[in-house]
């Protein structure tokens, strides 16, 4: 019997997208950022990226071995987590702290909650926040061209002028992957074209953040200030690569927009009124925690379904 007559239950049409394939697209999307980070911060950045990825993949493998589960490192999600985590670390971080971060991301944030698809928080961001609290000194010392400098956001907070053009290209101090807005945008456009992410979360995130900054930033409508806030810190990387994580963002379209708005408001709050100059990672993690609630209230109406309240009116 030929395949043509093969009888099976639905679905009959399957997309080629597997988890591994999507993760591969994300890795390709992160390549420009990674390459620019290595170019900007030198071989240290390359070593840190490789160490973090190795740590993530190894801890997933070891965890699955210990609890006798099928091994899942083939779906590349651990590689993406490792790469994203490394892009969120300063290039000068000692390698063992990066390894610890990788273990924390995979074992505590992801695997203990049931593995890919079950974690309520972005593993890379969870680990970054863990490292930020655990090794505050190492995580906030940024070095570029062999001298230690403040990040543009910290400089702006101290009242110094910053060059928005430098920040757009990325020749500034910061974590490995956050400095170049252009490199991130190239990767993001690739992901959008491939249909891996859509614009709902990043757009609502960034628009909300800009509105917040215009209202409460204290500079009014200053194009240089707004550009610097947009390109500074982890906002671009966070909006396009972390907030859009399938597992930890809402699945409903309206929920995604609401989620982006939450991220934007939190980021603005932390940056304008918080103790630190940067707040993207904490903002996204907080919004991750709100996701179940957001999804509960944004379930789309099925075709032909009548609202409960209207039904009651009709019955009168």
């Amino acid at each position: 019997m030929s395949d043509f007559y093969h009888v099976s239950s639905s679905p009959h049409v399957r997309a080629k997208d597997t988890t591994g394939r999507i993760m591969l697209y994300v890795i390709i999307g992160l390549l420009p950022t990674s390459l620019f980070g290595i170019y900007n911060f030198g071989y240290k950045a390359l070593i840190l990226i490789l160490v973090t990825i190795a740590s993530c993949v190894a801890s997933e493998w070891v965890f699955n071995k210990i609890v006798h589960k099928k091994n899942t490192i083939g779906d590349l999600s651990a590689v993406v987590t490792g790469l994203l985590l490394a892009l969120n670390l300063p290039a000068t971080l000692p390698w063992w702290q990066a390894v610890l971060g990788g273990v924390f991301a995979i074992v505590v944030v992801k695997m203990l909650f049931g593995g890919l698809g079950q974690n309520f928080m972005n593993p890379a961001l969870g680990a970054r926040c863990f490292l930020l609290i655990a090794f505050a000194a190492n995580m906030t010392s940024f070095e570029i061209n062999a001298y230690t400098g403040a990040t543009p956001l910290a400089a702006m907070r101290a009242g110094e002028a910053v060059n928005a053009m430098d920040m757009l290209i990325g020749r500034t101090a910061g974590t490995i992957g956050e400095t170049s807005a252009i490199a991130i945008l190239i990767g993001a456009i690739f992901l959008i074209l491939m249909g891996v992410i859509d614009l709902r979360i990043p757009a609502s995130y960034i628009i909300t953040f800009v509105i917040f900054i215009l209202l409460f930033g204290g500079y009014g409508f200053d194009i240089n200030y707004v550009t610097a806030q947009l390109c500074g810190g982890g906002l671009m990387l966070g909006a396009f690569f972390m907030a859009t994580d399938y597992v930890t963002s809402p699945i409903t379209p309206r929920g995604q927009i609401l989620f982006g708005i939450c991220c934007g408001i939190f980021t603005g709050l932390f940056r304008c009124f918080g103790a630190n100059a940067e707040g993207v990672s904490f903002a996204i993690i907080l919004s991750n925690i709100l996701v179940p609630l957001i999804e509960k209230y944004t379930v789309p109406r099925a075709f032909g379904q009548v609202k409960e309240s209207k039904k009651a009116e009709g019955g009168k």
């Binding site: 702290q97 610890l100 505590v108 863990f130 609290i133 655990a134 090794f135 505050a136 190492n138």
Partner: peptide, 15 residues
């Protein structure tokens, strides 16, 4: 040894 300061803070208690 670099102290892992998170352990003397509240989250460390939970871990």
């Amino acid at each position: 040894f670099t102290p892992i300061t998170i352990f003397v803070m509240a989250p460390g208690a939970f871990l």
